[in-house]
Amino acid sequence: MRHVSRLIPRLGWIIALGIGVILPLLVSDFDLLDLSRVLTLAMAVAGLNLLVGHSGQVSVGHGAIFGLGGYAAMIPVVSFGWPWWAGVLLAAVLSLAFGILLGIPALKMGGANLGLLTIAVAVVFPLLLIRFQPLTGGTFGMFLPSPAISLPDSGFTSRQLEFWVCLLALAVVFVALRNLVHGRLGRALAAVRTSSLLAAANGIAVNRVKLIAFAVSSTVAGVAGALYALVVSIAVPDSYVFTFSIALLAASVIGGSRSWAGAIIGAAIIVYLPTLAEAFVGGQAAGNWSQFVYAAGLALCLIVAPSGIAGAVTSLLGRAFAYAPMRRAVVERSTDMRTTSTAP
């Protein structure tokens, strides 16, 4: 019985992965672009979840780290002809370094203060991008002349390959983060989140644990940003404005900041909700109406499911599931009885 219940979630993820793998063979390139955006954003949100949900630190500046990763990948690929994966590696290294750099003052701050520090990073980042024009391309940013991820003779389009790359990266990130959270670091994080004093009293190096969470979260966001930029083929300051950082945080909270599935749900909401709102409102003079509907949608999600959509669905389904094992047990007992009765 026990391995069956352990198998169900695994099975769910395996099925999801399976669907993901065959998806590029089924849907159009246009849809694959948006779905790849969802995957990469989900990766960044998962990184944010480690920080917000598991470590209890707030970051309103992950949009800037996401952008840093994007530029770190695009600049060498566009300006120096590096292969795309080398750009992603560089993005990982730089965002790790930046995470540590930002994490050290963050240790001294908590709650609102950390929020402010990260807001400042999010606000200043696009201004710096515009300033460092020779390197970053200034206002216009960097753009790929043609898709970076391609295999000309394979018969697959770039959009298909990009989706598979993003899917693989997301799977790796999920597994790594899950293991991290279930391992020693995760227990330490849980202790720190509940009470940092208590954790310190129990011999946990609070600062080190928090810094590791910040650094890992930042690296994941940077890699996600690198893949995102490579997929959309651009890195432009206007992509990484303050509202984008806020949207990432909103995705984490709305999806459920302790749930990996929630990261995908949250990312899907910030990519598709604006478009759905536009379709719902209709008419092109109604742009502000669609922003209004988007805002109302966000508020509704929060009010209906304050602990995140994944959490709400979980408890809802959990209640439904609660009866199932009981019934099964009854059935089993009756079968047992039948066996015993026929045996003699």
């Binding site: 219940s5 352990r6 169900i8 979630p9 099975l11 769910g12 993820w13 099925i15 999801a16 669907i19 998806l23 063979l25 089924l26 849907v27 159009s28 390139d29 246009f30 849809d31 779905l35 969802v38 749930s259 990996w260 599935a261 929630g262 995908i264 749900i265 899907a268 598709y272 959509i309 994944a310 669905v313 979980t314 408890s315 809802l316 389904l317 959990g318 599931f321 609660a322």
Partner: peptide
């Protein structure tokens, strides 16, 4: 464990909704 199962179901539902809106490959 039940929790995770439910989360996976939620994810599957999200994916289903998303995919319903997608266009197939090779459609004109």
């Amino acid at each position: 464990m039940k929790k995770h199962a439910a989360a996976a179901v939620a994810l599957a539902a999200t994916m289903a909704i998303l995919l319903a809106g997608c266009t197939g490959r090779g459609e004109p």
